[in-house]
Amino acid sequence: MTRVDPAQIPGVLLAGGLARRMGGGDKPMRTIGGRTILERVIARLKPQCSELILNANGDPARFAAFGLPVIADTVKDFPGPLAGILAALDWFAANRPEVALVLSAAADCPFLPRDLVARLHRALIDEKAQLAVAASDGQSHPVIALWRVDLRDELRHALVVEDMRKIDRWTARYRLATMAWPTTPLDPFFNANTMDDIAEAERLAALDAAGAQ
């Protein structure tokens, strides 16, 4: 594909999950170190992306304070993050037709790398791949990836016709670049799934703040 300036790549924050392990509600609205997780995610990605949108279902007004466009899944029954990615690719195709690549990131990952977009894009180009995914500690994080907008119809078919739910099953169909990050002093892809994770995130936030000084 044509080389893209990483600074011109927009991002979607995926907040469409049901947070069952936390008893429901919006995980990104939980507070860590006096700031919501979503605030932290936006602060990490805003300097890296040309713009950000938020994928969330339900009443979008609850996110109004963040000033981001909020888009809902277009595939019913909460089929998972692939539905949010598809909604984002469709939104950018309709509203920013010049956009070729979109970053996706989980809205409950408060410590995302500050070089996320640049390194994923470099891996995509260097490996002549169609998609690029982040990894750490030997594990890939397929929710945090670069996606080609021109693959959205193939993704729609996988979701609607094939009832596909797992991201790695879909990415396995394409040339996939994987870019790994170190996990010291903390794993940048730590995500808060449970209340115990929130407590651990408080500890990591102090480490992260110390490392930034």
Rank of each mutant, 00 (worst) to 15 (best):
L116H: 00
V117D: 06
A205R: 09
E154L: 12
I71M: 08
G33C: 01
D137I: 00
P110K: 07
W91G: 11
L131N: 06
D5L: 03
D115A: 07
E202W: 01
D90V: 13
V41L: 02
D115H: 08
E51Q: 13
A180Y: 03
Y174M: 10
K27M: 11
L18C: 09
T74I: 15
D77Q: 13
T74E: 15
L101A: 05
D59Y: 04
G17V: 00
P47I: 05
G80I: 02
P69T: 09
D168E: 15
L13M: 10
N57L: 04
T36N: 03
A87Y: 07
F92R: 09
S104M: 05
E200Q: 15
K27L: 09
A61S: 15
G16P: 01
D26Y: 11
G33H: 00
P47Y: 01
R20Q: 10
L151S: 06
R175K: 14
V70D: 00
P110Y: 04
G25S: 03
A206V: 14
L103W: 03
A134K: 08
P10W: 04
D168T: 14
A199G: 05
D59A: 10
A56I: 02
A135R: 09
A61Y: 05
I85W: 04
Y174R: 13
D187Y: 08
A64P: 05
V75L: 08
G24V: 02
R119N: 13
S104N: 06
I37F: 02
K128N: 14
P113A: 08
A65S: 15
H141V: 15
D77E: 15
L38Q: 02
R148L: 08
R203Q: 14
P47A: 08
S50A: 14
G58L: 01
M195C: 05
D137F: 00
D163H: 15
L204P: 02
V160L: 13
A123D: 12
G211K: 08
G67W: 02
M164F: 02
F92P: 03
V143T: 15
R35E: 14
I125A: 13
A209H: 10
I125W: 08
D73T: 08
G23E: 01
D90Q: 15
E127P: 00
A210F: 07
A15F: 00
D187K: 13
P182I: 04
A61T: 12
L116N: 02
C49K: 09
S136K: 03
D208A: 15
G24H: 01
L14W: 00
I144F: 01
I144C: 13
C49Y: 06
A106Q: 14
R122L: 12
S50Q: 11
A100M: 10
A64S: 14
D196L: 10
L186D: 04
R40E: 09
M164H: 10
H141I: 15
R30H: 09
L54A: 09
A100Y: 01
D26P: 04
P188I: 07
A64Q: 13
N57Y: 01
K27F: 00
